[in-house]
Amino acid sequence: MDNVSGALTSLYRRCGYGRFRMSKFEEYGLYSEHRAFLPSAGMITFTDTDGRLMALKPDVTLSIVRGSRDGVRSKYCYNESVFRTVNGRFTEVEQAGLEYIGDPDPVCLSEVLLLAYLSLRRISNTCVLDVSDLRILTAAAKRADVSDFGLFVKRIGQKNLSGALQLCRNGCAEKLVGGLLGAPSEPAEAEKLLYSLSDGEEWDGTVGSFFRVVRAVDGCRFDISVVNDPDYYSGLVMQGYVEGVPAAVLSGGEYGNLMKKMGKNNSAAGFAVYLDRLGGKSEPAFEPDRTVFYGKDDDPSAVIGSIRRALEEGGSVMSVPVKEDD
């Protein structure tokens, strides 16, 4: 795990993201007001010596946003443990990620996407970074006259076309929603298809600004089913996968709505890498450059001498006791 998390933090710092360090706990009120932003509602709480209710930190972004100042652009990266309820049990989850605070322009958004893609590549060469834009989905829902936007977003996230169409009251929905869900993943082809679904300048403008950001980063793919919570996210959203890990290992996007909810006047973007989901992918199996075998009668100083030489030469080494009957 240290192997990957250290490399990711180093990557972000080389792009000007300063290390953000936090204490392990914060006032419960910060999180209770924004429970929906957290992947799980469960928190570990306790009472501080002055009577305040505290929580072991279940999230990093909320803390960074709370400390941000309007009108000040800041770039932070982190590698922190957060504490959540997972499958009904309190769990420590390690996350690395970054946040760009302060109305990210297209270049900044592309930079966030690039770092997300490079983060996935650092974990595995067989990876996918899927991106979408909630403004496109919101515009489509409006055109389709959707009866329940929250449920519509959920069904789009499941690639459940028939379920999504059940919520549409406009006859144009089948072509529009079916087109979006069936759009090619290659960004240039997807852009062409989305323009073909246009109903005017507003749609074209949203599609154009989204693909301008996405086209700048080789390796991104379009997928309208990437949907993070629209109460918090406001535009570009992303999810990253690596082969062999069954769930997304990276998630994020532009979270202007969260900023608004927290009383901030600017937007922000970022992502988190869920290091706990990587399992064996986070660190290669240990393969020593040299193996030192020893028996019970061997002189320890001779064995230690071999180990020391290997380490001083910069290699790796493992000592292995040999059983009598081997």
Partner: peptide, 11 residues
Amino acid sequence: IANKSAYKFKT
């Protein structure tokens, strides 16, 4: 139904 990650790599 499909696993989300598998869908990405066995599309």
